[in-house]
Design a protein around this nucleic acid. Structure first.
Lengths: 192, 192
DNA sequence: GTCTATATGTTGATAGAC
DNA sequence: GTCTATCAACATATAGAC
């Protein structure tokens, strides 16, 4: 859990800021853009935040928290690793639907600033936990054994994460349908 | 085919420029960075190019050409659509291995500038052709019928494209192995 | 083709009044 | 908590000599 300080006024700005960051990109969004979009001047924005980088950090932390929670929650469930893996995939699709712009920012990070370096570390941590789950499912004999666990993990969640580039969920039913589609493709395969 | 004017001196700069764009991001790379990395001053760079945007356009055009060629080449082959689709997936992995930074730039485009808008159009065109191929494979009865063609297409090539984020091919054998892994996951599925 | 200036705009961030 | 005014740094791009 990445502890988030309880600054309420900041939480008001964040949704708007995150929308701008995801649409135009972090670098292409100026503090002036943010001020205008939130109906304030730049100075007013700086009264709430130490700078642009903190806004990014805050947004990414939200995505990290949500995705980490999925993993922690699934680890507590008994049963076969392959089923836990499928559950993580489904829950990840849900998180992505609920927190799209936040997850998008986490996935786009390149490591240029300190905040982005931190984000990359968080991602590596999540990746390690996912790989362990995949490896366990293979070891238990439920997944095919001819594929490398780290490769399978990245391909599988590369598929899930690619949703941020085009998917715009329209409701609870569409989320379930998308989770079904991804599980069908990745676990059962396209050929018949 | 996106006709590329035959300016040789420019082709010398492009690999270095594309490396910078993919590592730091387009916005975070200045003309000064480009000048330094290519051992020239900014003015010398401007003698070869009209501006930063043209460099991006040129790089993206290369990726578009390579990926379009894969589709055109596969369309000329007889046989079942599902086999052509599998072939396109394999060839896409190869193109990605050979032209990684160029393809990466194409995939990261957000549409902020004119060059990026053009790139998005090119991507839509490729996407349409891929979707038609998937739809044909379903219609011929070789792929499962419970999934939406556009969704399947984006998931399938979302998987392929996600490679740019982490894969660093080490030789011809590793490229074949990766193509095999993706085809195994997407066409046959992970469960056994 | 390359260089040394330099023009011109925009950026993130701060000072200080209200 | 919001404002106006402003700074210093850095951006893209150009002028003009060699």
């Amino acid at each position: 859990m990445t502890s988030t300080p309880p600054r309420r006024s900041l939480e008001e700005l964040l949704p708007t800021v995150v929308a701008l960051f995801t649409e135009r990109g972090y670098d292409a969004t100026s503090m002036e853009d943010i001020a205008r979009a939130t109906g304030r001047t730049k100075s007013a924005v700086y009264h709430h935040v130490s700078g642009k980088e903190e806004l990014l950090r805050l947004a990414i932390a939200r995505a990290v928290d949500a995705l980490s929670a999925v993993l922690t929650e699934s680890a507590a469930v008994d049963g076969r690793a392959a089923d836990r893996l499928e559950h993580v995939v489904r829950r990840s699709v849900e998180v992505l639907a609920e927190q799209q712009p936040y997850v998008t920012l986490l996935l786009r990070v390149r490591g240029n600033t300190q905040a982005e370096q931190w984000a990359l570390e968080q991602r590596r941590g999540i990746d390690r936990r996912l790989t362990a789950l995949v490896a366990a499912a293979i070891a238990e004999g439920d997944l095919r054994t001819d594929l490398d666990p780290p490769v399978v993990t990245r391909l599988l969640f590369g598929t899930v994460n690619s949703l941020v580039e085009w998917w715009r969920p329209t409701g609870a039913a569409s989320v379930t349908a998308m989770a079904d589609s991804i599980v069908a493709l990745a676990f059962t395969g396209l050929r018949r």
